[in-house]
Simulated scan of single mutants.
Amino acid sequence: MTSPDADWIREQLDRIAVKLRNHYGTTSGITGMALGVDMWWASTLQLAEIPYTAHIPFPEQPDPWRTRNPEAVAEWKRLRALAADERMYGTLDGLTGDARKRRAVQLLHKRNDGMLAATDAVVAVWQRGKREGGTYSALVKAHQAGKPVVLVDIRSRFVTVPSPRRLAQLLHPERPVPLPLPLPS
């Protein structure tokens, strides 16, 4: 992600948080505490004075960042401490190699499922067309659950709340959309 993209995304998250608070009465938020957008969202919620729950897949989440991005680890710890509440989904303690990787993926999905179960609506930053990874998986599940989605589309630099039909088209463009049949007269 380029710096201009990151700047644009952060501006949109700030705007969305204030609008959710001021116009829709949002009183709490949720973050997955992943490096990047999740941590930006936590910071945005904190600055907008919206209490948030940190959904942490495992306490070792920031470990891979320690050598290449120690500032991110410090920010993760700061945002974790500022959270109004915390939900932990498991641990990687004692696991190595492939077993550790498999368990991490399981807990990341469990975290995403927990966030979806705990929310009434979803704010998602997604690169339209990307059909893999946690954000795509969470968007598919949010759509299946009928949750409204505030979609921050990186590619088009557009923020929208797509209808369920439009979200289905965005998530699965290869599937034909049935045309409504005319009612018999």
Rank of each mutant, 00 (worst) to 15 (best):
L79T: 07
T135H: 02
I9C: 01
L47V: 10
T91D: 00
L116F: 01
Q144V: 14
Y24W: 09
G25P: 02
P182N: 10
L108C: 09
T44G: 01
M115T: 00
L79G: 06
L151E: 08
V159W: 05
R66G: 00
R80E: 12
K77N: 14
W8E: 12
G25W: 03
L167R: 13
D7E: 14
I30F: 12
A121N: 01
T31C: 07
K77T: 12
I154D: 06
N69K: 11
E174A: 10
G129Q: 07
G97N: 10
L170K: 07
Q144Y: 09
L170V: 03
G25N: 02
D98I: 13
K77C: 11
I56V: 15
G25M: 02
T44C: 08
T27D: 06
D93P: 00
L151H: 08
E86F: 06
P182T: 10
H55A: 13
W76S: 06
A54K: 08
M88C: 12
P162D: 11
G32P: 01
H143I: 14
R128E: 08
L167H: 12
G32L: 15
N69Y: 12
G146S: 10
Q46I: 07
V18Y: 07
A83L: 07
S43P: 00
V18T: 15
L116M: 02
K110V: 05
P148E: 10
R103V: 07
L20A: 04
G36C: 08
I30V: 13
Y89H: 13
G90M: 00
W8A: 08
R100Y: 00
R131Q: 10
Y136K: 09
D120M: 03
A99P: 02
T31Y: 00
G133P: 05
G133D: 04
V105F: 05
A54W: 02
T67N: 13
K141C: 05
E11V: 09
A74D: 11
V125D: 10
R80L: 14
P70Q: 10
E49Q: 15
A124R: 02
L181H: 02
A138I: 06
R66C: 03
V161R: 14
A42D: 04
P57A: 15
A104I: 05
L167W: 03
A83Q: 11
V159Q: 01
D85C: 03
P148C: 09
N22H: 14
Q169L: 12
A74R: 09
R157E: 12
D153I: 11
P62Q: 03
A138H: 08
T26N: 00
T31Q: 05
A81V: 02
V149Y: 01
P62F: 04
H55T: 08
T96R: 04
P57W: 09
F58G: 01
D120N: 08
A138R: 02
R78D: 06
V161I: 15
P59S: 12
